[in-house]
Computed example of a mutant assay.
Amino acid sequence: MTITLITGANKGIGFETAKQLLELGHVVYIGARDVERGEKAAAALGARFVRLDVTDDASVSSALATIDSAEGRLDVLVHNAGVLEYGVTDGPTALRVFNTNAVGIVRVTEAALPLLRRSSNPNVVTVSSSAGSFWAVNNPDRPEFHLTTALYSASKSAATMLTVQYAKSQPGIKFNALEPGFTATDMTAAFGGGRSPEESARTVVRLATLDEDGPTGTFQDETGELRW
C-alpha cells in the first residue's frame, strides 16, 4: 500500500488528485481546514480525512501524528493547499498569502520528513505555478506575462525554490514542483475558463507515482520540465 497525504484536498485539483491516486490503489489522506467539508470529500471518495491547516503548527503536527500512529510512514506528500489574492497588495495580505503558499510547505514538509524517511520510495510534489516563473512572466508569448498577481506569483516562486532546495538537502526523497495549467476551480473563478481539475491532476499524479530512479528538483508541466 502507498500512503499518501494531500493538503487542501477537499475540492479542485487536490480532490481530483485524491480520486486518481485512490484508483491506483493508494491509501489517501485528505487534509483540509474545514472538518465538515473534508469529511464529506473523504466520504465521497473513500479516502481518509485529517484536519490540517497548513498555517497552524499545532494542526500540522497533529495531522502527521495521526498518520504516523495509523500507518507508521508516509510515501507521498502533495502540497496542494494554496490561496490566490489579486487586487489587494498590503502587508497583512502578503503575510496571509506567503503563510499559506510558502511557509505552509515548510511546516508540512518538516513534520512529514520523519515519516517520509521510512518509505522505500518517498515522493513530495508541490503544486506551484508558472505565475512564479521569471521565464514565463517575462515571456510575451506566455499567458503569465499578462498577470498582475504580485503576491501569488512571488509566493509561488518561493514554493518552487523551496522544492528545489529540499531536493538538494534531502537526497533520499524526491521533490518536484509543477505547473498544473490554468484550471477551472473556485480559486480561479474570477478569471473565467480553464480546463478541468481532472486533467490538471494528471500531472500531479504522474509526479506522485515516480519510480525510485525518477527525477528530483524539477519544475514540470504535462509536457515535461520547464524553465523558471
Results as ranks from 00 to 15, higher is better:
44 A>V: 00
34 D>V: 09
39 E>A: 07
35 V>H: 09
64 L>T: 12
18 A>T: 03
46 G>R: 02
69 S>I: 12
23 E>T: 12
39 E>H: 06
45 L>Y: 01
20 Q>H: 06
33 R>L: 04
19 K>W: 02
56 D>V: 12
47 A>D: 01
62 S>V: 14
59 S>D: 11
33 R>M: 05
67 I>L: 12
52 L>N: 07
62 S>H: 14
66 T>K: 15
55 T>E: 15
21 L>C: 10
61 S>A: 15
16 E>G: 05
45 L>G: 01
20 Q>N: 05
66 T>F: 11
50 V>H: 04
45 L>F: 01
16 E>N: 07
17 T>Y: 04
27 V>F: 10
31 G>D: 05
25 G>L: 09
65 A>Y: 12
34 D>Y: 06
24 L>Q: 15
32 A>Q: 03
50 V>T: 07
47 A>G: 01
55 T>P: 10
39 E>Q: 14
55 T>F: 11
56 D>H: 12
35 V>T: 14
54 V>S: 07
47 A>M: 01
34 D>I: 08
35 V>W: 06
29 Y>G: 01
19 K>Q: 11
67 I>G: 08
68 D>N: 15
26 H>N: 12
60 V>N: 08
24 L>F: 10
67 I>D: 09
53 D>S: 10
66 T>S: 13
44 A>D: 02
57 D>C: 11
67 I>V: 14
57 D>E: 15
39 E>D: 04
51 R>D: 05
23 E>P: 06
49 F>G: 05
29 Y>R: 05
31 G>S: 05
51 R>Y: 06
60 V>Q: 09
43 A>H: 02
50 V>F: 02
23 E>L: 12
31 G>L: 03
18 A>Y: 04
38 G>T: 05
51 R>C: 07
48 R>L: 06
42 A>C: 00
27 V>W: 09
65 A>D: 15
39 E>C: 03
21 L>E: 09
30 I>R: 01
16 E>F: 02
66 T>M: 13
38 G>Y: 00
67 I>Y: 09
22 L>F: 03
